[in-house]
Design a protein around this nucleic acid. Sequence first.
DNA 1: GATGAAAAGTAGTGACC
DNA 2: GGTCACTACTTTTCATC
Lengths: 153, 153
Amino acid sequence: MALTKADRDIIKLMQQDATITLNELAERVGLSPSSAQRRLQKLRDDKVILRDVSIVDPKKVGTAVSMLVEVELERDRPELMPPFLRWVADTPEVQEAWGTSGRGDFTLVILVQSVEHFDVLADRMMEMNPNVRKFTTSVVLKTLKRTLAVHIE
Amino acid sequence: MALTKADRDIIKLMQQDATITLNELAERVGLSPSSAQRRLQKLRDDKVILRDVSIVDPKKVGTAVSMLVEVELERDRPELMPPFLRWVADTPEVQEAWGTSGRGDFTLVILVQSVEHFDVLADRMMEMNPNVRKFTTSVVLKTLKRTLAVHIE
DNA sequence: GATGAAAAGTAGTGACC
DNA sequence: GGTCACTACTTTTCATC
């Protein structure tokens, strides 16, 4: 699964614009269209490229409040961990979630329509997860940058 | 720019899988392929859908350390704000950045190859931005969820 | 073992109703 | 918004290195 220069170039280009045609892609990485397509297919088969998605502007669909939430769990109730993980997975307003060292146990990025929606969501989180000891919320005032693109040298 | 039911369905589907064909898309939203394509094109023209990108598995390209960084800036030097914003925009290892209320002024998601790379990056951040008063770093131990998909009712 | 050229199949586009 | 014809893109085949 070693990546060639062409593979890395394909990844870079596809992370910027996945609607690029194979002809364009091929030209820019210095391969024929059929070679480029085979490499791309292999990158998908090997799960280097996981999927292609459309990026939507939240403001344009009436969903404009982002929150960063640090959640602290009770460590002495490990049996309540899986339900919490399931809640994270099943709650579409939770866009991102990391388990971290440092202050909080988990950091969540939550995107909702309004502060009222967030209130409801936070209440439900507490209700469904008695192992949530406390959480601190930071309101996002300005989103400077948002990408899942991985930097490739 | 009011969104129809079909528009919202198109957005939902495209956020999951942007490689879907117009035939499939049309069928699943209850339109003809060319109608679906017109709506999709309008969503792109109106910047509701900003772009399509490939999602890459960082582990598969040798980039496996994520950090959450809270940065506190000196408030009495507003002239140094633009350079900081430019540093964020121009540093590909910074995947996400928000300006927040609460403790830190900014929260960054940084993805690097190794802790050593992070050290170099953090040093350079301090060097290039004398208005960074302090920053606290949380190492990501586990990534539970990662999507930019916006939840649409 | 991967490449490129070309053929065959499929999907996207635009004019018209 | 739907139908249809046209164009463009993708995929497979096959010969080659």
